[in-house]
Simulated assay, not measured.
Amino acid sequence: MMELMIDAHGVIRCLYDETLLLNSLGSPVIQRASHVEPTAEGQWEADLSPVSGPRLGPFSRRSAALAAETVWLQQNWLLSDTME
């Protein structure tokens, strides 16, 4: 489920997926919130530094890193009072 957060000025914030074509709401500005990358040891980390967040992991599976990334973004960025 794609959640859209709309501030008092009509600015929409969301975690991108292909559920909704964002250009149907206007001209989207899409920015990377994180990087999920493998480590030298074959583990996975989610680096949330693009939104001033932490580095999560390591995880043995990429899917676990992606899930942790999503949870962190939903709890700490999507509902944030300040737009990055």
Rank of each mutant, 00 (worst) to 15 (best):
L21V: 08
P58R: 05
R55S: 03
I12T: 15
P58H: 03
Q43A: 13
Q43G: 04
S60K: 14
G53P: 12
S24V: 04
V51D: 01
T19E: 12
E18V: 06
T39G: 03
D47M: 05
F59H: 09
S60C: 06
V51L: 00
S60W: 12
S34I: 02
H35P: 00
G42R: 00
S34H: 11
N23G: 03
A33D: 00
S49F: 01
G42H: 00
Y16L: 15
P50W: 10
G42M: 06
W44L: 08
E18K: 07
L48G: 07
L21C: 11
E37G: 00
T39C: 04
A40N: 10
S52Y: 11
Y16T: 02
S24F: 04
D47R: 10
A33M: 11
L48A: 00
I12M: 15
A46F: 07
P50G: 04
S52E: 13
P58I: 05
G53N: 14
N23S: 14
E45Y: 03
Q31K: 06
A33F: 14
Q43R: 09
S27E: 15
L15E: 01
S49T: 13
R32Q: 13
G26T: 02
I12C: 08
A46W: 07
S60H: 13
G53C: 14
S60R: 12
G42D: 05
H35F: 10
G42W: 03
L21K: 05
V29E: 12
E45H: 04
V29I: 06
G10L: 15
P28Y: 06
R13C: 03
Y16H: 05
S49K: 05
P38E: 14
R55K: 06
T39K: 04
L22V: 06
W44F: 12
P54S: 03
L20C: 09
W44D: 04
S24P: 00
H35V: 09
R55M: 09
Q31A: 13
A40E: 13
C14W: 12
Y16D: 07
T39W: 11
S60P: 06
T39A: 04
L22H: 06
G53M: 03
S34N: 15
W44A: 09
A40R: 13
H35A: 12
Y16F: 13
P54A: 03
G26K: 04
F59G: 01
G26W: 08
W44G: 10
S52F: 10
Q43S: 13
A33R: 11
I12H: 09
I30T: 06
A40G: 03
A40I: 12
S24E: 11
W44R: 11
A46P: 08
L25W: 11
V36G: 02
V11R: 08
A40Q: 15
G53Y: 09
G10E: 13
V51A: 04
V51Q: 07
P58W: 05
S60D: 12
S34T: 02
L20I: 14
A46D: 02
S52T: 02
V36K: 03
